[in-house]
Design a protein around this nucleic acid. Structure first.
Length: 283
DNA sequence: AAAAAGAGCAACCGCCTCTCG
DNA sequence: CCGAGAGGCGGTTGCTCTTTT
């Protein structure tokens, strides 16, 4: 059986997206959602493959994307998760709110892999604090999620654990979270099962993917401009333009950005609670 | 100042999985 | 149950920008 090409490539544009294309795609999705990616470019009047549109939206145009450099905590989380999950970029991205699998993959290949190699070549080089914390815990027999329930872990009393409080918003989850978690292999699922999921569900009402896909978006879409934290000023004039063009009608979401940062703490703590360590992943 | 090398990242490709008829 | 279509994922490419020589 010959698989049909994902789309008719004849006459379709490739390469970098233009500002106009971005705007067309964004406004179309805001109006009609993206129930059918393959049909979308035709309906929107774009000479692009549906996959290309999907990629552009997910990796770049989605409003909940966190721009800017990765924090040390984020990098450490990626390193740690990569140890556990391997190249499951989507699964890793699901644990880093606002980050995309593509972005994480790039960071891994450009920064973290090299750093890891350096560290392995020079074991005396100590990784920054979070990883040390993980490693220290992992050396404790009680840290294995195989052996003991997570509540036995000593860090339960860690004041930072309070970050798992109900105040934390569901926005800590990227829209890819659900789908990505669904693809976790049994090993990862086991880990997740041993995390106190009931707490998570209380603290983090799962955000529906339809948040960004259902149509139409309310006219008074209230996306605070500071949410996007476009610190990489030059990353894309296109994005700048698009984000600036989003009408801000409710300035009361100032906590949103900080929540994203708090999300790192959440995952960090979650990780610790899961007994996150290279050893614990070797079932 | 110019050329070369390296780094960073957006985007493409192809395979796999899921869903539905 | 089977096959086709669509979405999703991970690997890879190639362009652009930055740094080094």
């Amino acid at each position: 059986m010959v698989r049909a090409p994902c789309c008719d490539k004849v006459g379709l544009k490739k390469g970098p997206w233009t500002t106009e294309e971005d705007q067309i795609l964004m406004s179309f999705i805001q109006k009609y959602g993206h129930e059918n990616w393959r049909a979308l470019p035709k309906q929107a009047g774009l000479l692009r493959c549906g996959k290309s549109c999907r990629l552009r939206w997910i990796n770049y145009l989605r409003p909940d994307i966190k721009r800017g450099n990765f924090s040390t905590e984020e990098e450490e989380t990626i390193l740690k998760l990569h140890e556990m999950l391997g190249n499951k970029w989507s699964a890793i991205a699901a644990k880093l709110p606002g980050r995309t699998d593509n972005e994480i993959k790039n960071v891994w290949h450009t920064h973290l892999k090299k750093r890891l190699n350096r560290n392995q070549a020079n074991p005396e080089i100590i990784l920054p604090t979070p990883t040390n914390h993980f490693n220290a815990l992992s050396k404790s027999p009680s840290s294995s999620c195989l052996n003991l329930p997570s509540h036995d872990l000593e860090f339960e009393t860690d004041p930072s654990y309070t970050s798992l409080s109900p105040q934390t918003s569901s926005s800590d989850f990227s829209s890819v979270t659900d789908a990505s978690l669904a693809t976790m292999d049994p090993t990862n699922q086991y880990m997740m099962d041993h995390i106190e999921v009931e707490d998570m569900s209380e603290s983090f009402p799962v955000i529906d993917d339809s948040l960004w896909s259902e149509s139409p978006l309310p006219e008074n879409i209230s996306v605070p401009s500071d949410v996007f934290a476009i610190s990489d000023h030059d990353k894309s004039q296109t994005s700048q333009y698009l984000f600036n063009s989003i009408e801000v009608v409710e300035p009361g979401y100032d906590h949103f950005g900080s929540i994203i940062d708090d999300g790192m703490e959440f995952w960090y703590n979650l990780f610790i609670r899961a007994g996150g360590s290279p050893e614990s992943s070797e079932f």
